Amino acid sequence: GKELVLALYDYQEKSPREVTMKKGDILTLLNSTNKDWWKVEVKATANDKTYERQGFVPAAYVKKL
């Protein structure tokens, strides 16, 4: 199945390749080969529509579930 990670801290994206997350968010882990930056998929809701974004977050800010 898919691997999930838990956001340990809030993170505000600093570039278009990154994604914003809030502490407590559960994210889908896409790639953890880089030890510093993990690629995740974030589900977000805006205007009653759910959309998914993929991007990088600092590996130290998340932990595998």
Rank of each mutant, 00 (worst) to 15 (best):
residue 1 G to E: 12
residue 1 G to M: 13
residue 1 G to S: 13
residue 2 K to N: 10
residue 2 K to T: 11
residue 2 K to S: 09
residue 2 K to C: 14
residue 3 E to V: 15
residue 3 E to H: 12
residue 4 L to I: 07
residue 4 L to Y: 15
residue 4 L to V: 07
residue 4 L to K: 11
residue 6 L to R: 08
residue 6 L to T: 06
residue 7 A to P: 00
residue 7 A to L: 02
residue 8 L to T: 04
residue 8 L to M: 09
residue 9 Y to R: 15
residue 9 Y to N: 07
residue 10 D to C: 06
residue 10 D to Q: 03
residue 11 Y to P: 01
residue 11 Y to S: 00
residue 12 Q to N: 14
residue 12 Q to I: 14
residue 13 E to H: 07
residue 14 K to E: 07
residue 14 K to D: 05
residue 14 K to W: 04
residue 14 K to P: 03
residue 15 S to K: 07
residue 15 S to W: 05
residue 16 P to F: 08
residue 16 P to G: 08
residue 16 P to I: 10
residue 17 R to M: 12
residue 17 R to P: 05
residue 17 R to E: 11
residue 18 E to S: 06
residue 18 E to T: 08
residue 19 V to I: 14
residue 20 T to Q: 03
residue 20 T to S: 15
residue 20 T to K: 03
residue 20 T to A: 06
residue 21 M to K: 01
residue 21 M to P: 00
residue 21 M to A: 02
residue 21 M to V: 09
residue 22 K to V: 08
residue 22 K to W: 09
residue 22 K to D: 03
residue 22 K to F: 11
residue 23 K to L: 04
residue 24 G to E: 02
residue 24 G to I: 02
residue 24 G to P: 01
residue 25 D to T: 06
residue 25 D to A: 07
residue 26 I to H: 03
residue 27 L to I: 07
residue 27 L to N: 01
residue 28 T to K: 12
residue 28 T to P: 15
residue 28 T to L: 15
residue 29 L to Y: 03
residue 29 L to C: 05
residue 29 L to W: 01
residue 30 L to D: 01
residue 30 L to T: 04
residue 31 N to G: 06
residue 31 N to Y: 07
residue 31 N to M: 07
residue 31 N to K: 06
residue 31 N to E: 14
residue 31 N to R: 06
residue 31 N to F: 07
residue 32 S to L: 04
residue 32 S to D: 15
residue 33 T to E: 14
residue 33 T to A: 12
residue 34 N to P: 04
residue 35 K to H: 10
residue 35 K to C: 10
residue 35 K to V: 10
residue 36 D to V: 14
residue 36 D to T: 14
residue 36 D to P: 02
residue 36 D to L: 13
residue 37 W to V: 03
residue 39 K to Y: 15
residue 39 K to F: 15
residue 39 K to D: 03
residue 40 V to W: 01
residue 40 V to T: 00
residue 40 V to L: 04
residue 40 V to N: 00
residue 41 E to I: 13
residue 42 V to I: 12
residue 42 V to T: 15
residue 42 V to Y: 10
residue 42 V to L: 11
residue 43 K to S: 13
residue 44 A to R: 12
residue 44 A to T: 14
residue 45 T to H: 11
residue 47 N to T: 08
residue 47 N to Y: 11
residue 47 N to G: 14
residue 48 D to N: 13
residue 48 D to H: 10
residue 48 D to G: 15
residue 50 T to S: 10
residue 50 T to I: 13
residue 50 T to V: 13
residue 51 Y to A: 10
residue 51 Y to M: 09
residue 52 E to N: 15
residue 54 Q to R: 12
residue 54 Q to G: 05
residue 54 Q to I: 14
residue 54 Q to L: 06
residue 54 Q to P: 04
residue 54 Q to H: 09
residue 55 G to T: 02
residue 55 G to I: 04
residue 55 G to L: 05
residue 55 G to F: 07
residue 56 F to G: 00
residue 56 F to S: 02
residue 57 V to K: 00
residue 57 V to R: 01
residue 57 V to I: 08
residue 58 P to E: 01
residue 58 P to G: 02
residue 58 P to R: 04
residue 58 P to H: 03
residue 59 A to T: 05
residue 59 A to I: 02
residue 60 A to Q: 11
residue 60 A to V: 08
residue 61 Y to S: 09
residue 61 Y to H: 06
residue 62 V to R: 01
residue 62 V to Y: 02
residue 62 V to C: 15
residue 62 V to H: 02
residue 63 K to R: 13
residue 63 K to A: 11
residue 64 K to F: 09
residue 64 K to M: 11
residue 65 L to N: 02
